[in-house]
Amino acid sequence: MNTLAIPPAQRDALARWLDHLRALDAAAAHTVTAYARDVTGFLAFLAVHHGESEGLSAIAKVDQSDLRAWMAHERERKISSRSLARELSAVKNFIAWVADRETIDATAVLSTRGPKFRRKLPRPLSVDGARDMIAQVGAQAREDWIAARDIAVLTLLYGCGLRISEALNLTGTAHPLPDTLRIHGKGGKERLVPTLPAAREALARYAQLCPYDLAATAPLFRGTRGGPLNPRLIALVMEKARMQLGLPATATPHAMRHSFATHLLSAGGDLRAIQELLGHASLSTTQAYTAVDAARLMEVYEKAHPRA
């Protein structure tokens, strides 16, 4: 697709929209990059599809048939339903922003439905699996302080529901771990997460053994040479541990966060409260865990139900 065909007015509108996302919506950098790519592709298609060079007036003329033609084009490129749904969301977001500023009625366009797809269910570990994973990463480390570090990281993921990026973005100010931790999540959104005694104890032991000065402004978790801990190292540590434990390939750092949410729900946790703890913008994202819980109940039922 020839991106040079995009009219300057549309390029300018796209740049201003992306600035808006960064400044006002505090969108994460990778989200802005993905949106820029998705909308650029759509505008390039539109320029070729219409066969003429128009400015923002082309946006005003976009209708459902244009969107369907674009989606068909994306399908020909072997774009998955999930990815196409994401692209359509970005395009509709951009059109809505332009429509609001240009007094365009985009109601019909914005009602265009995206492709249906089955959302992948989170793949949590069992309670025993999560505990075994934490124990194993500690047992396989060569140095005591590294064992304490890896245990502390995984305990934060499982005990507090943190993303790996959130845990590794913590600085020395998080030590000693308070009863409530302020987390800066996706899009710069803040949330308060209560901490468990196990997490506070794990972090205290790591801080005691760590050979580096955990200054307030420095990264809390360190690599072997004292620099910030690379998330890939935690993934590799878990990969080795899951092979030792016979756990599936889905036993990743993010699976510890999935386990946190699933086990809370299984214990009777409120879905809205879990949404707040995880920092999900939409409840629909959190609701995926209800499907996981239901699936687990059915597995138990199938195994325990007496058969004639």
Rank of each mutant, 00 (worst) to 15 (best):
T171G: 14
L181V: 10
A27G: 02
W145K: 13
P228Q: 09
K61F: 04
L203T: 08
G268A: 04
G226M: 11
G55W: 01
A85L: 06
Y35W: 09
M133F: 02
G268P: 02
P211R: 12
S83P: 04
F94I: 04
R225F: 15
R77V: 00
S126H: 06
D12H: 11
F117T: 06
A202E: 07
V32I: 15
V48G: 04
A72H: 05
D38W: 05
L233E: 11
L156M: 15
T290I: 10
L277C: 10
L43R: 09
T173L: 13
S266P: 01
R205N: 13
S259W: 02
T195V: 12
L46M: 08
Q64T: 14
L297P: 00
A198S: 13
A304W: 08
A139S: 10
I95E: 03
A273I: 12
L18M: 12
S89I: 06
A241K: 10
V109G: 02
P115C: 08
I95R: 01
R205S: 08
G138H: 06
N230V: 10
P231I: 12
G114D: 12
H280I: 03
N169T: 07
D213R: 15
H305V: 14
P178W: 01
L162V: 05
T180P: 00
E52W: 05
L233V: 15
W17Q: 03
D270W: 03
L67Y: 09
L170V: 14
A148K: 11
A261I: 09
R37I: 05
Q208M: 09
L233P: 00
A141F: 05
S83W: 03
V48M: 06
H20I: 01
S284V: 12
S111I: 00
V300H: 07
A273T: 15
E54S: 10
D12A: 13
S126N: 01
W17E: 02
E302K: 15
A130V: 02
L121S: 05
I134Y: 02
K303V: 12
A60K: 05
I146H: 02
N230Q: 11
Y206M: 13
D105V: 09
A294L: 11
K78E: 13
P228M: 08
G279V: 00
I59A: 03
P7K: 00
K120M: 06
A261K: 04
F117I: 05
R272N: 10
P197Q: 13
L192D: 04
G226S: 10
R22V: 11
P253T: 08
L297G: 15
H20E: 07
A28S: 15
M298V: 07
K61E: 11
L181H: 03
I79L: 15
I183C: 09
M133C: 04
P115A: 10
P178L: 12
R272K: 12
Q275I: 09
A139W: 02
A23P: 00
D144S: 14
A141C: 08
C210Y: 05
